[in-house]
Design a protein around this nucleic acid. Structure first.
Lengths: 225, 225
DNA sequence: CAAACAAATGAATTAACATTCACTTCTACA
DNA sequence: TGTAGAAGTGAATGTTAATTCATTTGTTTG
């Protein structure tokens, strides 16, 4: 008699799980959360719909995990960009790098950015979104605190300013662009709309936003050219 | 033979329509769009569910109208606040009044603010939201342009800055607060959470945001104390 | 009143999904 | 090879609304 979980067994199971996650991720990146129905995920993974429930208690959990994964990825990038490069790296510069990183990533993957920032999702996933926003806000918050201490930024309540920056960037980058599209099932058009913005226009937009943010924090002209 | 539409007839019909709209509005203000199901609206209006479809082609249309109504109301207030009071009223002051108006209204009616700004809604209603955001952005945009011309604000692309301000305010005011609540059906808690902020804390928050926005626009210290 | 038509009703239907579960297919081990 | 137990299947079921429509009720006018 018997059966014992073994390397191979476990590996195989994990593989299926990974495949489900990957399929879901791809669907979200292409068509937003709306496109990631249980049926679609199963189909894309090459398994039956029921299989999803061998690996996740419910669809929300799967989607939440997708959200988490994408978030970590995104946040890690921005965090890295905000890290000081040299011992005398200014907060202004660090913040600027973080902003540019955030903006460039959003503009490069607009469908994902829209999904993470603004697409309507079910409440269980909305929770993840809250954490996501908070994660960004925390990066900014620390930077702002540092900058206040160093005298680069004007005195202010860092937590408020940080949240404000997140909103500022989100709205300016994706808010006004997508909304209509996701409904049409034809999400391609959304990406197309974004693609219509030229590279140089993007750079200009990023420049604008960067300037706006730095001014908002009261960057001291003396400290920084 | 016959039957002809008459004053009374038409009035009665309009009344029912109004009643439906009012019921929907109240439900949204109390519990967000999630609370405004067809059944709930009908019940609250004292009519049968089917009646809704005698007055609106579908539920989205009803909800969109609710959205529009609320929007007009809100936007009109902010617009009024932004109007110059005297012939030498500065853009800085006008903007500040607009910001304060926006913020105070949001803080006073958080459930409605959340519904209008952030609550997940179906795509047809999301369209209205787009217009709503745009309406605010336009108010800001014009003010910013004026301010640039008058030399109060630094040169910048007004449309970008305007959208950014909308996002900044939205996120700082309601973004971080609600998200979790709407799911619990127990939306009361959301309002309670907001109520937990004292009046003076609110004033401080508004002050913060106002300062942030003005700095972002590069208010010229010379022009304004 | 009766004919003509509108408005209102609310139970039944539809729609779009997620989710279940009886059953089949795999694996591991003695 | 037999069998215990996991993994996978996918048709059937459940869920949560919106939406329909045959029927009833209400108005108007000749």
């Amino acid at each position: 008699m018997a059966y014992r979980e073994t390397e191979l067994t476990r590996a195989k199971k994990t593989l299926t799980r990974e495949r489900l996650l990957k399929a879901a991720r791809d669907l979200v990146a292409q068509g937003g959360f709306a496109a990631a129905t249980a049926a679609a995920v199963a189909e894309k993974s090459g398994v039956a719909a029921g299989t999803i429930y061998r690996h996740f208690p419910n669809k929300s959990e799967l989607v939440a995990e997708v959200f988490r994964y994408a978030t970590e990825h995104e946040v890690a990038n921005v965090l890295a960009a905000s890290e000081p490069l040299t011992s005398n790296d200014s907060c202004t510069q660090r913040l600027q790098r973080a902003l540019v990183c955030f903006a460039e990533r959003a503009l490069r993957g607009p469908q994902l950015a829209y999904a993470l920032i603004a697409e309507p999702v079910d409440p269980r996933v909305e929770q993840e979104r809250l954490k996501y926003r908070l994660a960004y806000a925390e990066i900014f918050e620390e930077l702002i605190r540092d900058g206040i201490v160093s005298g680069e930024f004007v005195a202010q309540q860092a937590s408020v300013s940080a949240a404000a920056l997140v909103g500022l960037l989100s709205e300016a980058l994706i808010g006004p662009l997508f909304p209509g599209q996701t409904l049409t099932t034809d999400n391609t058009s959304a990406v197309a709309a974004r693609a219509a913005i030229t590279e140089s226009e993007q750079q200009q937009l990023i420049q604008q936003l960067s300037a706006l943010c730095l001014r908002a924090l009261g960057v001291n002209a003396h400290t920084h050219a």
